[in-house]
Amino acid sequence: MTTEMFILATLDGLSAAALLFMVALGLTLIFGVMGILNVAHGSLYAIGGYVAATLGLAIDKFGLSPALYLPALFLAAILIGPLLGTLLEVGLLRRILGKEHVLQLLVTFAAFMILEDVQRLVWGTQPYFVSNVMNQFGNTDVLGITYTNYQMIVLPVVAAVAYYGLRYFLTKTWLGREVIAMTFHREVATAMGVNAKLVSLLTFVIGAGLGTLGGALASPSTALLPGVGADMIVQSFAVIAIAGLGQLGGAALAACLIGLSRSFAVYLMPELAVLTPYIIMVLVLLVRPEGLFAATSMRRI
């Protein structure tokens, strides 16, 4: 491996990790509050990306100002995240809270299947690739490698803002503390006056928003194809499983681990690149069944 390849793989890995982290953050937040792994989270990512790409194309088509490129990405996430999030939460998740875990998992799996087809019906099977934002931000030379500013600076900055923003919200605001209270004990929090329905909905919308934001921000640098949703749910699950369910900070490290190992695998063993998230997840769980940063939980007896 040459130095150039090394730098390239590192930069690729970090930008991928930034996106992955945002999506995983949403997934683990929802799990923490509702106790449900939302398999349809992968679809939110994909749809966020498709909508962003569509907006990007529309800007070019109608000759609107290129200054709108970046805001359009956020607009896509803000439009779709809360919309689909509310739909899923009110229509499905809220109604399955008391059901068996297997059934909860299957309901979100069903939602995932439906949304996969919806993507195919709306956007077809042709790859979407709208990189106008990325070109707008230009490139920078890093030790002889030309790399896009969008991936190198914009993505990590947004991911960091999302993480610290979420942390500020959870620890410093009243509403955020209610969310935390719910993650510890739903019944007790409800008894103490937390509006469980509202908090759940809010959490779900924020989580979904992080998923769609990840997709929207990924659209300039990666091609959108049928199946990206499935790929993303597995990767982001791997991230939160490695970190330990509900571990926000740990997820950042886990995302870097997966992002980097995948990008290095692309250069070193391209056949195995797709498999790296799985392999790392299996290896970590082999050693630490509850993930790297989670404490073991015990049944009350």
Partner: peptide, 17 residues
Amino acid sequence: TGAWQITLGTVLIVIIF
């Protein structure tokens, strides 16, 4: 055609509920 997974998903949700 093209809506096979929509059908499966919907049926699955209906059964579970």
